[in-house]
Design a binder for these strands. Structure first.
Lengths: 92, 92
DNA sequence: CATACCCGTGATACTAATACCGGTATAAGA
DNA sequence: TCTTATACCGGTATTAGTATCACGGGTATG
């Protein structure tokens, strides 16, 4: 095993990141936000649904910019998920 | 071509990101910072030298935390590289 | 000289991100 | 009903990140 597979906790953290991004997107369409961020709508959908739990730094940066979200805020809240290590709620 | 290869500009941006991280590391050793961030020293080396130009979001988040750097600052300065699109200096 | 770090590079292994395609489902509107 | 728009899902293709191993150079210390 050379590259460690993502742990369930990392996947949970990715789902939570996607949830935050989706909430920030609000009423705007995926295609719109993806176009502004310069990524494909498919990729945005995968990130929002947590199927791409560890997206690239600049991908998140572009999304955060398009959504008006501070990245440190995102990272902090996702880190909280990792610390609590609940696994089910991922909310609050 | 399904996944777009990294453009020279994206690689340049990655080199600049690595430069910023290296500057922030200062006198500390790679092994120390990598251990604190929870990644391997080899990976940190690749990121700092720009051989991994688009690291994962949480990887950068862990490094930023270990180095006391704000991620928004990092993203902003790297975005400036992309905008100016110089390609050689990558400094200042 | 030997030992031990620290950094750099290359090769290798394996997983994951990104993108495109087709299909499906749902809701709104003519 | 038919069309359109949006989003979800599966598969597929390709590139890239992450980790380990091995080797080399540099520096410092015994």
């Amino acid at each position: 095993m050379v590259r460690t597979p993502l742990t369930p906790l990392e996947r949970e953290r990715g789902r939570y990141l996607g949830l935050l991004l989706r909430q920030a997107r609000g009423e705007r369409s995926m295609a719109d936000v993806a176009a502004v961020a310069g990524i494909s709508a498919e990729t945005l959908r995968k990130i929002e649904t947590g199927r791409a739990p560890t997206p690239a730094f600049f991908t998140v940066a572009a999304l955060a910019g398009a959504l008006g979200l501070p990245m440190d805020e995102l990272a902090r809240r996702c880190a909280a998920v990792t610390l609590t290590s609940e696994g089910e709620g991922a909310a609050a």
